[in-house]
Design a protein around this nucleic acid. Structure first.
Length: 418
RNA sequence: GGAGGCGUCGCCUAGUCCGGUUUAUGGCGCCCGCCUGCUAAGCGGGUUGAGGUUCACCCCUCUCGCGGGUUCAAAUCCCGCCGCCUCCGCCA
């Protein structure tokens, strides 16, 4: 949701943003009209209501015919107030519906265009020179680390078991991510993975990407695709104290995605799956600090990528490829040797005040309260195992273990096929 | 799942039976000022949030867990829901 006052004062900003994303500009004028109509009907209701209240005060002391006359007038007025209130509620509701339509206003500097129009900010690390490349599934099966056949038997396609060193590697990676976050001052959190509709809607995931989300109809709950969702809801309807800096949380959770519309894409292995684990950074900060905080989140992501010794690049995602909540997004993509392409491992979004406005998360300032900014970023996921296995593979099908992960696999520096 | 209790402006709390001088009481905390060698105490004032209107001040409306209803009028009466607590039952 956007700040109507900003739109009222500077509608061109939203128009420009909608153009950059390739979305509708008409909604801006519709919004302005709905806002005007809401304010008009609200004023009318308030005027009548004030009259009703002052008339109501004259009734108790009155008596006889005078009282009867007052009561008759009050009764008429009550009907008018009721009608005016209904009209004002309708106008408010129309405005709320419209206000939920536009995506967040993109920040200056975000590349214009669609999925292919990203800007590469930098490439870090050496792409390994491999003679014979095995993909992560072949390597994982060799090590006794990944079992997708039995995953499919038990739960269907895009499910898997992590077994033996595979399970250890995942736990190790996520622990390393958690430890990295805690050292950086984040509060570690283990979150609910089922959330109420308001929270899911508040994070902006029920718009264009609603198909991606599992819903438990009997209980009216949604399975989260990331702990960003419960962490954004954590402070809903609260007024925060950000005077001592951002509130930073590191969420550990299972994540569920339907992967609707990705049939036939990344069907092999565990690149694109219905369920995985993730450690997610989430930050509540002042709006003016959000851009700097975004850089910091990116910095911690890159620290993790360096710790597991992966070659990667950082891209500034184009406006048309941003989620509805994001005003800017940086992805880190690791090299995927088996496909000679880049694979997204992290994604950090600056949602400015968009989510906070929907979820009603504010901070206290000298003059009152205002919406905070929220940001999120990935510190580790199951998918990272794909890049780790492939980039650290050796000709015999064994896999070297990055130093930072060795404590989690019994101190071994190499995982051998079983 | 069953029974009972509770939900008031940061925290505690009065008001709810019996609707209207309630602009929701008082205390704690916090903020401003006065007083004072300093601090504490004392004294005075302020202190929910949102919206409308306005250059601004003022003013107005909503807000007593949430949503309906009754009424000229609802914190107060009625209905539904949510949350918390206690007990019972069931179950990892």
């Amino acid at each position: 949701m956007l700040d109507l006052r900003v739109i009222r004062e500077d509608p061109e900003r939203l128009r420009a943003s909608q153009r950059a994303r390739g979305e509708s500009e008409e909604v801006v004028d519709e919004l302005l009209a709905a806002d005007r109509s809401r304010r008009a009907s609200l004023s009318e209701f308030e005027r009548l209501r004030a009259e009703q209240k002052s008339l109501g005060k004259e009734i108790p002391p009155a008596a006889g015919e005078e009282k009867q006359a007052l009561l008759a007038r009050a009764k008429e007025l009550a009907a008018a107030v009721k009608a005016a209130e209904a009209a004002a509620d309708d106008a408010q509701q129309r405005l709320d519906q419209l206000a939920a339509v536009p995506s967040n206003i993109v920040l200056d500097g975000v590349p214009v265009g669609g999925e292919e129009d990203y800007t590469v900010l930098r490439e870090v690390g050496e792409i390994p020179a491999l003679e014979k490349v095995r993909d992560h599934l072949e390597l994982g099966e060799g090590l006794g680390a990944i079992d997708t056949e039995r995953g499919a038997k038990v739960s269907g396609s895009r499910f898997y078991f992590l077994t033996g060193v595979g399970a250890q590697l995942e736990l190790g990676l996520l622990n390393l991510a958690m430890n990295t976050a805690v050292e950086a001052g984040f509060t570690p959190m283990i979150t609910p993975t089922l959330v109420r509709p308001e929270v899911m809607a508040g994070t902006g995931f029920l718009g264009a990407h609603a198909d991606e989300i599992y819903r438990l109809e009997r209980d009216d709950l949604y399975l989260v695709g990331t702990s960003e969702v419960p962490l954004a809801g954590y402070h809903a309807d609260e007024i925060l104290d950000l005077s001592r800096g951002p509130l930073r949380y590191a969420g550990w959770s299972a994540c569920y995605r339907r992967e609707a519309g990705s049939h036939g894409k990344d069907t092999r292995g565990i690149i694109r799956v219905h369920q995985f684990h993730k450690v997610e950074m989430f930050s509540y900060c002042r709006e003016e600090d959000a851009a700097d905080e975004h850089e910091r989140l990116l910095g911690w992501e890159e620290r993790m990528l360096a710790a597991v010794e992966l070659p990667y690049r950082v891209i500034d995602v184009a406006a048309g490829d941003l989620g509805s909540s994001a005003a800017r997004k940086f992805d880190c993509e690791a090299w995927l040797p088996s496909q000679s392409r880049w694979l997204e491992l992290t994604s950090t979004s600056n949602c400015t005040t968009f989510q906070a406005r929907r979820l009603n998360v504010r901070e206290r300032t000298e003059t009152g309260t205002r919406q905070v900014a929220t940001l999120n970023g990935t510190l580790g996921t199951t998918r990272w195992l794909v890049a780790i296995l492939e980039n650290h593979q050796r000709p015999d099908g064994s896999v070297a273990v990055p130093q930072a992960l060795r404590p989690y696999v019994g101190g071994r520096d190499v995982l051998e096929p079983v």
